[in-house]
């Protein structure tokens, strides 16, 4: 996702990471109980996990996150007026890039004089599953996060 942000920055595309809640709390990264802790974890996201996009922090009660469906790692694309044009219940870089290319083409078609009307489409996208990498990520949170995920999903 960082690479996509870099690749499309010059084409009028912004990218932010919105910090929500700890989806898999563990001994090292337990549940959030204060904004100070939330800011600290968000800085770790930048410093330890290498998120180079602007990071914004939601309220402690997740007001924004909850209003948009509160999925643990979803992605939305908004236009300049704040209208969402894409939403995905899981973040997948290929899906996001595919959508961006489509919307940038819409912009080009409009500029060339095409009269366009919006319509709704649903599509099932597919992401690569990296179970090993996912468990390695959980392990960073503490062993509790690993055992709880195994108990929930095997």
């Amino acid at each position: 996702m960082n690479e996509i942000a870099d690749r499309y920055r010059d084409q009028g595309v912004g990218a932010v990471f919105l910090y929500t809640h700890e989806a898999h709390p563990g001994e090292i990264y337990p549940r959030l109980t204060s904004m100070a802790q939330k800011f600290s974890n968000a800085r770790d996201l930048r410093d330890k996990l290498g998120v180079t996009r602007s990071i914004l922090v939601d309220a402690l009660d997740g007001a924004c996150h909850r209003a948009y469906g509160s999925m643990p790692n979803m992605t939305w694309i908004f236009n300049k007026s704040g209208v969402p044009v894409y939403k995905s219940d899981w973040t997948d870089a290929a899906s996001v890039e595919n959508a961006l290319q489509y919307f940038l083409d819409v912009k080009r078609r409009r500029r060339s004089g095409a009269r366009l009307a919006p319509f709704h489409v649903e599509r099932l996208d597919y992401r690569t599953q990296d179970r090993e990498g996912f468990y390695a990520g959980l392990d960073r949170n503490g062993p509790k996060a690993v055992s709880e995920f195994r108990a929930a999903f095997g």
């Binding site: 996702m1 996509i4 942000a5 084409q11 009028g12 595309v13 912004g14 990218a15 932010v16 990471f17 919105l18 910090y19 929500t20 809640h21 700890e22 989806a23 898999h24 709390p25 563990g26 990264y29 974890n41 968000a42 770790d44 996201l45 330890k48 996990l49 996009r53 996150h65 948009y68 999925m71 643990p72 790692n73 979803m74 992605t75 939305w76 694309i77 908004f78 236009n79 300049k80 044009v85 973040t91 996001v96 961006l100 919307f103 940038l104 912009k107 959980l138 960073r140 949170n141 996060a145």
Partner: peptide
């Protein structure tokens, strides 16, 4: 600030 903005929701964990 942008024609389109990608907003990824998530956390460290």
């Amino acid at each position: 600030g942008h024609a389109y903005t990608v907003v990824e929701f998530g956390s460290f964990t």
